[in-house]
Design a protein around this nucleic acid. Structure first.
Length: 985
RNA sequence: GCGGAUAUGGCGAAAUUGGUAGACGUGCCAGAUUUAGGAUCUGGUGCCGCAAGGCGUGUGGGUUCGAGUCCCUCUAUCCGCACCA
């Protein structure tokens, strides 16, 4: 009897979809558009494991569902194909990264296709394809040729800036960026500037600019890294140490967009965690800058930044960062040695130490005094490394009564502490709350926080001693990488000035080089390129773009991937606009997702895109973790025993002894019963005797060598079934275990321990989708991954559960093939119970998918099939709509059944979603739990149409109260129609 | 320290949003059938108890006729940021 054979069905339909371009999306349609996007993968050499497709399956389900609901769906896939691993591999093997990348992409496409995704493959993009990165370079040049006008609050082409220079010189221009990098000049001077001088004057205004920047330099990788590529002072890729270094670098002026990036978050349907991370990363704080004069130094003034200007009367000392430029000037001769020692000590501490150690209080007094500009009191000026040079002004006014760090510092160095509100409790610690009324604060005594802040800022501004100021934590994005496998930055140098490559000369193709390492002189690998000059004359920039460049706009290219004239055609862009649903991991929260938003806003400013934000709704799928299998070895202190033979030392290998998990735990806790003791120790003894016999000179006691805790060893999960180890397979798998001894449980099974951790080759816990598709089919794998739990959650993989969904598909198949596997669906009218089962499913599946709750949807389908099986239903009226419901989840099987039901091949994606009809769910009677004081006593049946009053009357008329109310009066009747009755007595 | 999340059977989880907690699936137990397979089918399965019954959604409290769900407290785990003034 022919049964359900997924392997056959799936191959057939995948081929059909491919040859017929079933899922090709049209850029023109009467239908509403829906754009579903997965974060495209970096094609790593290892291929896909079962965790990777999780998000892809979910997005594919949504795509297929939306098509059924009448949307024109764009669902593309591509590859983020520039990146470090391919280059590291190239350095080791000499293989061109393009080659390995190409191979890896091949594997990915094969694996993705075998899962039956409805991608429009005609739109595939690869960031390393010159036809693609031509436009990445083009966007970079747009940034290079733009400035940010704070008056219009948007980016503008440089032309508007040049016009201003010609008209009024540099006066009155409000541009985003660092004022101090810019020089002022008049319009007359501008006219006399040479080309070089003009470019130099313009450079600090550009949105892509080169500047000496403190960077995260990673010697291990030979490149700089952005902040989001550094975790705990180590590189995210490779885990090499990272240090701060001042280097000339290309930067993108993302800071110009800080406020808009923050505002935009409110309009997005994103997880709170991601929004919050971005808010943190942008780090907006509203406060004031205040100038403190310095005693005996007419020239020197100390600018501090504070978010609590209201506490200024409590500012009893100042603290500068050790790197602050005034430190040398303010240090008095008497304090010279102390201060210098402190600065040296700070320098010696690595970035990591400084971050790790936030408890130790340290600092040094400069000997100078500032003057609190409001109270007029002298305040000591200190330096301490808890003040960061890179944030605010690099100096703070310390208010020990209101800030815990200042408090600790003041206590430690015995500095004055002045309370500033009548509500402050500062005996033990600082009180940063904003309650109460001010005291000791001449100008604002008796006022509340709100009133005081306002009044103070007015006062500061009126007297020229400060002003309100907003600060951001976000820094400009460092854009250069000293690597080979990335987009060349389209810049060349003429007389030491940077010029953008002409648009007509794009793409600037990555040149071939003989080796992928930095040059002997320490230049990036591109320094090795021979005769690589713009127009044969000018040196190119040698760094390449970071990994996030290509991924910052790929969602736009999918709209019109083959356009040779424009990065995306206007018509296509206006039709698709932006991504409706974006799926990917949470690890991109502050990297890719922020950079994409930045580029999108920039393109919007130039009028090149329509939507305000690139990704309207975002879902972070959780990671699927591996379920590692462990075996436990009782460790001999030496595994190689050395002894004196007749002719020098001889060695004997002590066999490894592995103990089954449960037995091991009892051995360890000393809770073995008699049988187990006998079993365990006799086996050990046997091994011992055998060893001593084979090595006649010896009389080793293995038991002596079991003192230490056994060590656990990961074994390949593929030779473990249901936590039971295949012992023969282990011997095969690791030749050094060939002669090992495995002590099993009494029933002969050898059980492994289990640990949940990330899937990785080294832990032998990687489960490949290929194997599961081979055994259960892609439909089963798709269903199971969705069934595993809520999409967003982290969850361990457990292959055991696969049989459940496989059984479901078989059961479903039998609904259509009841006898001998032959298709037999009748045209009889459906019975009420059957329609009820179907329409419950229609409603549940629809409701849940709109909430992106996929696991409950799969459950609903399972329940439906169970119900229909129990009803022995084989009727078209029920089974045909059911196929449509099923099709997003198990598309291959659905296509197969759809054709058997008499429809054209491949037409199910155009089928109409079955309409839900409430009337089939209406019950004649409803069971009501009837409770007394909330405690359910009985279940009574009432007509579905019964009103609350009917039910109350019926319960009163019955003997219910007599039996359960224990003689008490019914005080209140609570009837929830359709649900339950509660009687309060 | 700050911010975000999570907590329900042996395990993955569900709960119409305040109305009979544990659906569905695994796992386990028992049975049927078979060409012993990792097949199929039936029944049981939160905990304690022979049972009646009692207890039960991380802890402690509160609101309510009624709380997994709402409010307060605490705890644990995970993630992110971290001397940001």
């Amino acid at each position: 009897m022919p049964g359900y054979s997924p392997q056959e069905i799936e191959k057939k339909w995948q081929a059909h979809w491919k040859t017929n371009s079933t899922f090709k999306a049209d850029n023109r349609s009467e239908k509403p558009k829906y754009y579903v996007l997965d974060m495209f993968p970096y094609p790593s050499g290892a291929g896909l494991h079962v965790g990777h497709p999780l998000g892809y399956i979910a997005s594919d389900i949504v795509s297929r569902y939306k098509r059924l609901r009448g949307f024109n769906v764009l669902h593309p896939m591509g590859f983020d194909s520039f990146g470090l691993p391919a280059e590291q591999y190239a350095i080791q093997t000499g293989q061109h990264p393009a080659l390995t990348t190409e191979q890896n992409i091949g594997t990915y496409i094969r694996q993705l296709s075998s899962l039956g995704f409805s991608y429009d493959w005609s739109r595939e993009v690869r960031t390393s394809d010159p036809a693609y990165y031509k436009w990445t370079q083009w966007i970079f040049l747009k940034l290079f040729n733009s400035w940010y006008n704070l008056d219009t609050n948007k980016a503008e082409p440089l032309k508007t800036l040049l016009d201003k220079f010609a008209e009024n010189g540099s006066d009155g221009i409000r541009a985003a960026g660092d004022e101090e990098e810019r020089h002022s000049f008049t319009n007359g001077q501008w006219k006399l500037f040479s080309e070089k001088q003009r470019l130099q004057a313009v450079h600090p205004y550009r949105l892509a600019y080169q500047q000496d920047t403190y960077v995260n330099w990673c010697p291990g990788l030979g490149t700089v890294l952005s902040n989001d590529e550094v975790k705990d002072g180590l590189s995210e890729r490779g885990g090499f140490p990272v240090e701060r270094r001042l280097m000339p670098q290309w930067n993108l002026r993302i800071t110009a967009y800080a406020d808009r990036l923050l505002q935009g978050l409110d309009t997005l349907d994103w997880p709170d965690a991601v929004k919050e991370m971005q808010r943190n990363w942008i780090g907006k704080s509203i406060g004031a800058e205040v100038t403190f004069p310095v005693q005996d130094h007419e020239q020197a003034q100390i600018k501090v930044y504070t978010t609590r200007v209201d506490t200024i009367y409590g500012a009893t000392f100042l603290v500068l960062a050790p790197e602050h430029e005034l430190v040398a000037e303010l240090t008095t001769p008497g304090q010279q040695a102390t201060v210098q020692d402190y600065i040296d000590a700070t320098k010696r501490r690595s970035e990591r130490d400084r971050m790790a150690d936030t408890k130790t209080v340290s600092g040094a007094f400069t000997g100078s005094f500032g003057i609190n500009p409001l109270s007029g009191e002298p305040v000591q000026i200190w330096i301490a490394d808890y003040v960061l040079a890179g944030y605010g002004t690099g100096a703070v006014m310390a208010v020990p009564s209101g800030d815990q760090r200042d408090y600790v510092f003041a206590k430690h160095f015995d500095l004055p502490i002045i309370p500033v509100t009548d509500a402050q409790q500062i005996d033990e610690q600082a009180d940063p709350t904003k309650e109460g009324r001010y005291i000791n604060s001449e100008l604002i005594n008796g006022l509340t926080y709100k009133e005081a802040t306002h009044k103070l800022i007015q006062h500061l501004e009126a007297n020229g001693i400060g002003k309100g100021k907003t600060n951001f934590r976000i820094r400009d994005a460092i854009f250069g990488r000293q690597r080979y496998w990335g987009e060349p930055i389209p810049i060349y140098y003429k007389e030491g000035v940077a010029y953008g490559v002409a648009e007509a000369d794009l793409p600037l193709v990555l040149p071939e080089i003989d080796e992928y390492k930095p040059t002997e002189t320490g230049e990036p690998p591109l320094g090795r390129a021979k005769d690589w000059k713009y127009k044969g004359l000018y040196d190119y920039e040698l760094s390449t773009m970071p990994g996030w460049a290509g991924s910052s706009w790929y969602y736009l290219r999918y709209m019109d991937p083959h356009n040779a004239e424009r990065f995306v055609g206007e018509e296509a862009e206006q039709y698709w606009q932006n991504v409706d649903l974006y799926l990917g991991g949470a690890e991109h929260a502050t990297g890719h997702l922020l950079y994409s938003r930045f580029w999108h806003l920039f393109l919007k400013d130039l009028g090149l895109v329509t939507a305000n934000e690139p990704f309207q709704k975002l879902i972070n799928q959780g990671m699927i973790l591996g379920r590692s299998s462990l075996i436990y070895r009782f460790t001999p202190e030496v595994s190689l025993y050395e002894f004196e033979g007749h002719e020098g030392p001889t060695y004997a290998l002590i066999p490894s002894i592995f103990v089954s998990h449960k037995l091991y735990e009892r051995v360890w806790n000393n809770t073995l019963d008699e049988d187990e003791k006998e079993h365990f120790w006799s086996t050990v003894k046997l091994v011992e005797d055998k060893f001593n016999y084979e090595n006649e000179h010896l009389n080793l006691q293995f038991t002596d060598r079991f003192g230490d805790k056994p060590n656990s060893i990961h074994v390949d999960v593929n030779i473990v079934d249901n936590d039971i180890l295949n012992v023969d397979a282990v011997r095969e798998w690791r030749s050094d275990f060939k002669n090992a001894v495995f002590i099993a449980e009494l029933d002969g099974t050898f059980i492994c321990g289990v640990e949940v951790e990330k899937m990785s080759k080294s832990k032998y816990n990687v489960v490949s989708p290929d194997v599961l598709i081979e055994r259960y089919g892609a439909d089963a794998l798709r269903l199971y991954e969705m069934f595993l739990g809520p999409l967003e959650q982290y969850k361990p993989w457990n292959t055991n559960g696969m049989s459940g969904v496989a059984g479901f598909l078989k059961k479903l198949w039998r609904l259509y093939h009841p006898q001998d596997g032959d298709f037999a669906v009748t045209d009889e009218a459906a019975a009420p119970a059957e329609l009820k089962a179907l329409h419950k499913a229609i409603r549940k599946v629809e409701e849940d998918i709109e909430k992106f709750s996929f696991n409950t949807t799969v459950s609903a389908l399972m329940i439906t099939v169970n119900e229909l099986t129990a009803l022995d239903c084989h009727k078209r009226a029920v089974l045909e709509p059911l196929v449509v419901l099923l099709s997003p989840y198990a598309p291959h099987l659905a296509e197969e059944l759809w054709v058997e039901l008499g429809h054209a091949a491949g037409s199910i994606s155009q089928a109409a979603y079955p309409e839900f009809r409430e009337e089939y769910l209406v019950e004649d009677t409803v069971n009501y739990p009837v409770a007394i004081n909330g405690k359910v006593r009985e279940t009574l049946q009432f007509a579905a149409t019964a009103t609350a009053a009917d039910i109350e009357a019926a319960v009163r008329a019955s003997d219910f109260l007599a039996r359960f109310a224990e003689g008490k009066e019914a005080k209140k009747f609570i009837v929830v129609p359709g649900r339950m009755v509660n009687v309060v007595v």
